[in-house]
């Protein structure tokens, strides 16, 4: 960090900031501590070796990775449109992008059902023409988690695009680089940190998605039951299994967020 700072890193920050920051950190850490205290450590292995857990973990990983790839393919272009072009209805598009973040996921899931379900506006004709039914399949899970998680990569990449210095791209162009070369060799490397953090957030949100998945894709073990759904189901029947699975979710999510942070954000 070579930008000038208001207080030095080695110096104490203002006491207000410090006190409120500590309260904030405690607030975030407390539930995790609660989880750790309740964890049945001695039974952890047998609880996690269960078919329900392995099936759910597999579905969660497949769906969240697929959602991240789809978000990269269709979410990043939205970010480019929002950051680089002017068009009518742009503020509407931006609101639309933010909507899945602020909507209760259950509402998103119900809306998806009405649009893409077997009797939905688009899902109905799709079913009549091809026999494809999105709900109650892994495809439904992917659609649901992508809907909820994609906004994160759009807003992060848009912010990244806005913050880069346009002169680098201008210089590349003036040296004869074509649009794709500029994009590939200049723009994308420059936005790499925001792209990576956006994709990591998208993945993490998809991995933890619950409400839209349940509402749109339903819940059957080995077919549509993701980790969050399995945790929810186990809370009704087998508390220790629910805690063990929650621990796996915390561990996997933390591992990915911390590793990606070190790798891409360049924080040592």
């Amino acid at each position: 960090m070579n930008r000038r700072q208001r207080w030095n890193r080695t110096e104490r920050p203002p006491i207000v900031i410090m006190a409120l920051g500590v309260v904030g950190v405690m607030f975030l850490a407390l539930p995790i501590i609660g989880l750790l205290i309740r964890t049945p450590w001695s039974d952890l292995g047998s609880l996690l070796a269960d078919d329900v857990v392995l099936d759910a973990l597999q579905i969660s990983l497949v769906a969240s990775v697929a959602a991240t790839l789809i978000s990269f393919c269709i979410g990043v272009p939205i970010a480019f449109l929002l950051a680089r072009t002017d068009f009518r209805g742009k503020s509407l598009v931006r609101a639309l992008v933010l909507l899945p973040i602020v909507l209760p996921p259950v509402v998103g899931g119900a809306a998806l059902l009405f649009a893409l379900g077997r009797r939905g506006v688009v899902g109905g004709p799709l079913y009549d023409a091809t026999g494809i039914v999105l709900p109650f399949s892994i495809w439904g899970v992917i659609v649901a988690v992508t809907f909820v998680a994609m906004p994160f990569v759009v807003i992060t990449v848009e912010a990244g695009l806005r913050s880069i210095d346009g002169r680098y791209e201008g210089a590349a162009e003036s040296l004869g680089a074509g649009r794709w070369t500029v994009l590939r060799r200049v723009t994308i490397p420059l936005i790499m940190p925001s792209l990576a953090s956006g994709l990591a957030l998208t993945w993490a949100r998809a991995f933890g998605e619950f409400g839209a998945t349940l509402t749109f894709a339903g819940n059957v073990q080995g077919r549509t039951q993701t980790m969050p759904l399995a945790v929810f189901v186990a809370l009704e029947s087998n508390r220790n299994a629910a805690i063990a699975m929650s621990l796996v979710m915390v561990a996997v999510s933390l591992a990915v967020l911390v590793l990606l942070r070190d790798r891409w954000w360049g924080v040592s």
């Binding site: 119900a110 059902l113 009405f114 379900g117 077997r118 009797r119 709900p135 109650f136 349940l214 509402t215 339903g218 819940n219 059957v220 549509t224 929810f232 189901v233 009704e236």
Partner: peptide
């Protein structure tokens, strides 16, 4: 031959109402 196991009767009813 079950296609979805819903957490409560309301969410099951929603899926029946919508014809899914």
């Amino acid at each position: 031959s079950v296609d979805t196991e819903e957490p409560n009767v309301r969410s099951l009813t929603l899926k029946i109402e919508s014809g899914e």
